[in-house]
Amino acid sequence: MRGSDTHETDPTDNDRTGPEPPVAAVRTEDLWKIYEQEPAPVEAVRDLSLEVRAGDFVAMAGPSGSGKTTLLNLLGGLTAPTRGRVWVAGRDLTSLSGRELARLRLEHIGFVFQAYNLLPVLSALENAEFTLLLRGLPAAERRERVRALFREIGLDGLEDRRPGRLSGGQQQRVAVARAVVGEPALVLADEPTANLDSATGDALLGVMERLNHERGVTFIFSTHDPRVMERAHRLVHLVDGRIESDVRPSGRGSTA
């Protein structure tokens, strides 16, 4: 890892034989993801070690093909690493069964996708409350939490609309609501502003900053968007599947 115009973060401990790592929101160790394909295997993530503390607001930048999305998928347990380990909320994802992974995603991780990925057969409210429903929360509590969040992020009155009748910005806000309504420890957002105009993107970032600040939700973004990079508390730059730089711009993120 290289330094930047600001101070570097602490290097991650790579010694597997050492004491158990402290509980962080996310931690990876010697992480590799290799896609076997012709004519040669593709090393999407290479020997990557990273630790993200709880409550951080991290942007991962880098050119296309640098491994940002793959890394997010690895952190979310959506794909298995070829080598290395990933811890989320203190649990080693590589040791979990499919059912345990599904439970961990449900209870500890929220996802925001570039293409929104709302379920088209559910209304905005039903989409947002989906994870709460899976967790078995009573209907009244689910509705109350979603409505409160909708008021907070400007979706009041749109509860019954299906995704097809919402604008891109509205859909992405519903997706954010779905990701954070269960108050997960970690939200992984894959280029969340890529399909939004600048005003909508700014507003959405504001929503996520506020959730980070007020609720302590940890956010990790993959992004090409300079606005996201400017507002991140920590900026990790990936090139060819490795961390090229990992900086914490001065004055951002009180927990750095």
Binding site: G76, L78, G98, R99, A102, R103, R105, L106, E107, F111, F113, N117, L119, F130, T131, L134, R178
Partner: peptide, 9 residues
């Protein structure tokens, strides 16, 4: 994919 990402087995 979304359903599984959200926590369905």
């Amino acid at each position: 994919g979304v359903l599984e990402a959200l926590g369905l087995t």
